[in-house]
Lab assay of single mutants.
Amino acid sequence: DVEPGKFYKGVVTRIEKYGASINLNEQVRGLLRPRDMISLRLENLNVGDEIIVQAIDVRPEKREIDFKYIP
């Protein structure tokens, strides 16, 4: 289970102007929005990149997770 405040290694699977889709595994994925990137710009991400993200909002009833990137 993903817990708010914990850090996870994820893989960038899609990049859109509203954010990047991050997969932690086949069943768990979430969104990294541009506003939640401290020192990383969306255009510097590539599909397949592995990054460390922090879960900031977990809504299991909607199967949604928001991530934050902290270098």
Rank of each mutant, 00 (worst) to 15 (best):
E26Q: 12
R29H: 13
I52A: 02
G19Q: 05
G48Q: 01
V2Q: 02
D57M: 13
N46L: 10
L45K: 01
N23V: 14
F67C: 05
D36N: 14
P60A: 11
P4D: 06
L32T: 02
R35V: 10
L40K: 07
V47A: 02
Y18M: 11
A20F: 08
G10I: 06
L31P: 03
K17S: 14
V47N: 02
N44L: 10
D66A: 09
D1N: 14
E16I: 05
I65M: 05
D49T: 05
E16C: 14
N44S: 13
G5L: 07
M37H: 04
V53P: 00
D1P: 11
F7I: 06
Y69W: 08
E26R: 11
Y69C: 06
V12S: 00
R33Q: 06
N44A: 11
R14W: 09
D57L: 12
P34N: 06
N25S: 14
Y69G: 02
I70F: 11
E50C: 15
P60D: 07
N23A: 15
I15V: 10
R63P: 09
K68E: 04
I65A: 06
G48L: 02
N46I: 10
V58Q: 03
I52P: 00
E61S: 11
G19Y: 13
L31T: 10
R33H: 08
V2N: 02
E16W: 15
E61C: 07
G30L: 07
V53K: 00
G10F: 08
L42Y: 07
L24R: 01
G48D: 03
I56R: 05
R41F: 11
G48E: 01
R29E: 12
E16M: 14
G19R: 04
E16G: 14
K9E: 04
P71A: 11
D1L: 14
V47P: 04
L31I: 14
K17I: 13
V28T: 12
R59D: 10
I52Y: 11
Y69N: 04
L45G: 01
Q54D: 00
D36K: 02
Q54Y: 12
I15D: 00
P4Y: 08
E64W: 12
L42A: 04
V58W: 09
Y18Q: 11
L24I: 14
E43H: 10
K68S: 11
Y8D: 00
I70K: 06
L45Y: 02
E26L: 10
E26W: 11
D66Q: 09
K68V: 08
Y18N: 12
Q27H: 15
R59Q: 06
P34C: 09
V11A: 01
V53A: 01
E26S: 14
L32G: 01
K17P: 15
S21N: 09
G10P: 00
D49L: 05
P71R: 09
D1F: 14
M37Q: 04
N44Y: 11
Q54A: 05
R41C: 14
A55V: 15
D49V: 05
V28W: 15
V47Q: 02
P71Y: 07
A20M: 05
G5S: 04
D36H: 11
N23S: 15
I38Q: 11
R33K: 09
D36Q: 04
D1W: 15
E3Q: 14
V28A: 05
N23R: 15
P71N: 07
L45H: 01
R29F: 11
R35Y: 07
I51H: 00
L45M: 06
I70L: 11
I52T: 10
Q54F: 12
E26G: 12
R41T: 15
V11W: 11
D1T: 14
I70G: 06
D36M: 07
L40G: 08
V53C: 06
M37L: 07
I52W: 15
Y18W: 15
G5K: 04
E16Y: 14
Q54P: 00
I15E: 00
S21Y: 15
R33E: 04
K17D: 12
Q54V: 11
G48S: 02
K9V: 12
E61D: 14
V47T: 03
K62C: 10
V12N: 00
E61I: 08
E16P: 01
F7V: 05
K68L: 10
K9D: 02
L32P: 02
N46E: 12
V12W: 02
A55W: 05
L31M: 13
P4T: 12
V2S: 02
F67H: 03
E26P: 14
N23F: 13
G5Y: 06
R14I: 07
K9C: 15
A20C: 08
D66F: 15
K62T: 13
M37T: 05
M37C: 09
P34R: 08
F67A: 02
Y18H: 15
E61L: 08
D1E: 13
A55P: 03
D36P: 02
R35Q: 13
G10C: 11
G19I: 05
I38S: 10
R14V: 09
V53Y: 01
G19P: 02
I51M: 03
N46P: 00
G48Y: 02
Y18F: 13
N23I: 13
R33W: 04
S21P: 01
D49A: 06
D36I: 05
L42Q: 03
